[in-house]
Design a protein around this nucleic acid. Structure first.
Lengths: 255, 255
DNA sequence: TTAGTTAGGGTCACATTGACTCTAACTCAG
DNA sequence: CTGAGTTAGAGTCAATGTGACCCTAACTAA
């Protein structure tokens, strides 16, 4: 799973060249993903932001935790590469996947220069269960990760910042939830991401006035108290409003 | 100036290999930039958005206009590469330069797969004068470009969309202007980008209440009418608030 | 039946915003 | 020197959005 680095080096012109030769080689291209999910906190039980990390089994940074990532393989777009690699390394198949940023600092990797195009994903709580095949994948609280390999700490911080900014005006929150959800659940998503309590009444007013969310005639049963109404998100899919469809079939682009 | 494609191919493992061999080669990395400047419209004389394009002197798309771009050279960060290439191809050295998006569709370039990390820049009207050395660089109205090489039309549209969205709440507008500017000039920037008229009085109230802009004791003389006061932007530099400093010296990142 | 808890509706004060009016300050024509 | 024309810049008013509070409805558990 983390052998991609070796694999990528194998097709490069100077896989075992000296330093001067390596500097002449073009930078390697990698795809990584920051995956966010809401899971209940260990202490309070309230939903908080978590993300899965993969333990490195090779140098450099052997034994440390890193973002899931891999090489860009022929015949797949950037998004396809992120999606496939995510499935291979963590077993997750997020429905929401968007490009975050391209990191291309000179000394990100000690051996060879690597440019990483980083994606970020949101997964629902139900599908966030790791297939648990391996002990080398584990969930961490997003605001407490540290000691990551490479510059992945910086990447996680940037992803968190972008997530909080995008929550302010966008419809991302729904991607943490299933098809049907209560307003209290939606409010908990916002509270977890923004890290501050919100007034329930004002939140209701705000979200019911907004377009793209509609009440259903179903109610959530089984609680200890009055059953809340279930709502559905009927707004537009987010990918078209946020990035160009560089995956479209009939474009021929470059430089 | 546009020979970089050839140059990049020269260091790849299979520069003249057949199709099957080329498909095994890693994707080439390129840096391109969308440069925006405000220039007076030919008809109305009101400021409108313009951008410089470079005429391709080689296949593919020989003779068509394309975004300035080039290869990513060793020992320079992504942003440095964009900045250097901009100077080489257009002679411009924008002060505002930010990463836009990474385009990595499969068929962007007919011959070989190319992943382009695209930057965008804002330049002031004064410095927007092309050194004019060549006839292969020309300014075009941003909302009227067409027939561009590769998928550059799509890239320009996306950059325009991002620019308009970012104007709503940000301090980008100042980068189109010099150090001192009148409120009417600043309003014209907004009107040009957002493509709709704004109420002068309300705009004044909005912008004077906002932080980061301060009145000076200087006035713009020489007009036909009452001289307007000159203002200055004293807010924070934008690059830190919008993207991580992946150029920082002591990080070691990758995957 | 009653206590406890959440759902969900409402009120009030305050800030923000669009549309509009009015006066001050300057230039230019005569 | 005088008045017309134009823009700068301050102010008004109504509509709307928002935070901080209620209050009652509806359900569960004891």
């Amino acid at each position: 799973m983390s052998e991609w680095y070796q694999h990528a080096a194998a097709v490069l012109p100077n896989p075992s060249g000296n330093i001067a030769e390596r500097r002449m080689a073009p930078p390697a291209l990698a795809i990584s993903t920051v995956i966010f999910a809401l899971k209940p906190s260990v202490n309070s039980g309230r939903p908080t932001l978590w993300l899965p990390l993969v333990r490195r089994i090779r140098e450099p940074f052997k034994g440390q935790w890193a973002l899931p990532g891999g090489p860009l393989v022929h015949d797949e777009s950037l998004q396809e590469a992120a999606s496939r690699n995510l499935l291979e390394t963590t077993g997750l198949a997020p429905r929401y996947l968007e490009q975050l940023y391209a990191f291309g600092g000179l000394h990100r990797s000690p051996s060879q220069r690597v440019v990483s195009i980083v994606y970020w994903a949101l997964v629902q709580s139900e599908e966030a269960e790791l297939p648990g095949e391996e002990e080398n994948v584990r969930w961490f609280r997003a605001d407490r990760v540290q000691g990551l390999a490479f510059d992945h700490q910086e990447i996680v911080d940037y992803a968190l910042w972008r997530l909080r900014n995008k929550m302010e005006y966008a419809s991302i929150a729904y991607h943490f939830l299933g098809e049907y959800f209560t307003l209290a659940q939606l409010r908990e998503v916002y509270e977890a991401v923004l890290d501050r309590p919100l007034d329930p009444a004002n939140f209701r007013r705000h979200v019911t006035n907004a377009a793209g969310i509609e009440p259903s005639d179903r109610y959530l049963q089984g609680g200890k108290h009055r059953p809340p109404r279930l709502y559905r998100y009927t707004g537009p899919a987010p990918s078209s409003t946020t990035a160009p469809n560089s995956t479209s079939a009939e474009n021929r682009g470059t430089p």
